[in-house]
């Protein structure tokens, strides 16, 4: 078993220049980290012999609507070895994309866990966050030519009328 303290010590040893914000709420450990180290951090968490977070349970995002850093991407991991669940998350800001338009992006972790593949597609579909380096970033649920991102807070619950065509009667 590994405790929150020793986990944070390990992380600080591994990434000395990085600021981690480690908190515990209702017995769950949450780690906040800067988005540029996402792949290194994931590789460390998965391949370190004491941690071995082999199971990537969930990837999702939160839309904070009015905050400057609008989205938070949240990862849930599970370690069989330590019987420990870990949540770590990072804020992402609007930035320049390859197409010249502004958008939200973060590096994809599909190279670390294959399970991340569909989870990231789902997050892309629902929030419009671009996962750079994802092998097959398509929409997961909505039709391919749908233009909006449903789980963003500015998208109405009932959708945009007429945005998806119905067949003729």
């Amino acid at each position: 078993m590994i405790s929150a303290d020793s986990l944070s010590q390990k992380l600080i040893n591994q990434f000395p220049e990085t600021n981690f914000d480690i908190s515990e709420y209702r017995g769950e450990i949450t780690i906040q980290f800067p988005k540029k180290i996402v792949i290194d951090l994931c590789k460390f968490l998965k391949y370190d012999s004491e941690l071995e977070f082999l199971l990537c349970e969930d990837i999702t995002a939160i839309d904070w609507a009015k905050r400057k850093e609008r989205f938070t991407v949240v990862y849930h991991l599970y370690s069989f070895k330590n019987n420990l669940r870990l949540r770590f998350k990072t804020n992402i800001d609007e930035s320049e994309q390859s197409g010249g338009k502004a958008g939200y992006s973060i590096d994809s972790v599909t190279s670390v866990w294959q399970a991340a593949n569909w989870q990231e597609r789902e997050t892309y579909d629902m929030y419009g966050i671009n996962f750079k380096g994802h092998p097959d970033l398509r929409r997961m649920y909505m039709p391919e030519d749908f233009e909006y991102y449903p789980l963003r807070k500015d998208f109405p619950l009932m959708g945009i009328p007429g945005s998806i065509p119905l067949p003729k009667k």
């Binding site: 349970e57 999702t60 939160i62 569909w118 789902e122």
Partner: peptide, 25 residues
């Protein structure tokens, strides 16, 4: 279920981690 509360009556964010989705992958 991953729930984020802002202290309101409804969740700010609810994510359902569904097993079928991951198994189908």
């Amino acid at each position: 279920f991953y729930l984020v509360s802002k202290g309101e009556g409804h969740p700010w964010k609810c994510k359902i981690r569904s097993p079928s989705f991951c198994n189908l992958q």
